[in-house]
Simulated assay, not measured.
Amino acid sequence: GRWVALTLDDGPHPRYTPQVLALLRQYRVRATFCLIGTQVRAHPELVRQIVADGHWLCDHTMTHDDRLRRRPDDRVQYEIGAAKRLIEQVAPGARVRYFRAPGGNWSPRLTTAAAAQEMQPLGWSVDPRDWERGRSAASIVRQVHRQLAPGSVILLHDGGGNRAATVAALRVLIPQLLRAGYSFGPPA
């Protein structure tokens, strides 16, 4: 059918994650949150709210090291394993199903390390580059529609900087996609 997976990276963020959660709740939409360990440690209550609202969880490493694929094995193991354990610690019973490499900088070692932690690698097929400075909500919406197809994995961010434009874009995108007959599900 016509479904998409909405993913949100680099949180949780104390300002933007609650706004995103409110929108998702309003439209009864579920998303996948790719969480950074340092943010999880700083905002455990937001992780618990993400889980309570029924969203899926993704390990996005402890520190979002864009060069992780070049790091020694012990660092790779720490970044992936410590983030997963921390998420599970602050939200007991939660399942971290996915792993996303920081910046999409994948390597066979990262994929293998994630699989050893029983996580599936999570990429994306729609990237409106909402993290770029100066991006407007309208440009984010346009880029999503240009790249969108049934089965798309949409990459957006609820952390890592000012995400006001992303939140504004979601206010437009979610109802548009629902009206177009899309449903929101977990990444395939």
Results as ranks from 00 to 15, higher is better:
R69M: 12
H55N: 10
Q120T: 15
A52Q: 15
R133A: 14
T112M: 06
R135I: 11
L46C: 11
A82V: 07
E45F: 11
T32D: 11
A82E: 14
P121C: 06
G93M: 06
W106L: 05
A138F: 01
I36G: 08
A91T: 05
V20A: 15
D74R: 14
A94L: 02
A52D: 09
W124I: 04
L35G: 12
R71N: 00
G54Y: 06
L110K: 06
P102A: 10
W131V: 08
E118H: 15
H60P: 08
S125M: 09
R109S: 10
G54V: 08
P44R: 02
P102H: 12
Q117R: 11
R71A: 13
Q117E: 12
Q26T: 14
G93R: 10
R133N: 12
F99E: 01
R70Q: 14
D59K: 06
A116Y: 03
W106E: 01
A82S: 14
R30M: 01
A101D: 02
H60G: 08
Q39Y: 01
A137N: 09
R41G: 03
T61A: 08
V51L: 12
I140Y: 03
D130Y: 13
V141G: 09
F33Y: 11
Q117P: 00
V47N: 06
L57S: 12
V51I: 12
V20N: 07
P44V: 01
F99M: 02
Q117M: 07
L122P: 09
F99P: 01
A82R: 14
E132V: 12
G134D: 07
A82D: 11
P128N: 06
D66N: 15
A42P: 10
T63H: 13
G134W: 11
R41A: 15
P92I: 14
V40T: 12
A101Y: 01
W124T: 07
G93P: 06
A31P: 02
D73C: 00
H55D: 02
E132I: 07
A116L: 14
N105R: 15
L122R: 06
H60T: 07
D74A: 14
A91W: 05
R109W: 00
F99Q: 02
A113C: 09
I80P: 01
A115M: 13
L24G: 08
R133F: 04
D66G: 14
L86M: 10
K84A: 07
A116I: 00
H60Q: 10
V40N: 11
R135C: 04
G81T: 12
I140H: 03
I140N: 03
S107L: 02
T38K: 15
V90C: 09
L46A: 11
A52I: 05
G104I: 03
T63L: 05
Q26A: 14
V96S: 05
N105V: 06
T32L: 05
R129S: 08
R85F: 00
A22R: 15
R100N: 08
D53H: 05
Q120G: 01
A138S: 14
G54S: 09
R71Y: 00
I140A: 03
T112G: 09
P92K: 15
R67A: 13
A114Y: 02
E132N: 13
L23H: 05
G54D: 08
P102F: 05
I50G: 09
Q117V: 00
W131L: 07
D73P: 10
H43V: 05
Y27L: 03
H64I: 04
P128L: 04
Q26K: 15
Y78T: 10
L21G: 04
T38D: 13
A94P: 02
L122H: 08
L23R: 02
P72S: 12
R133P: 10
G123R: 12
I87Y: 08
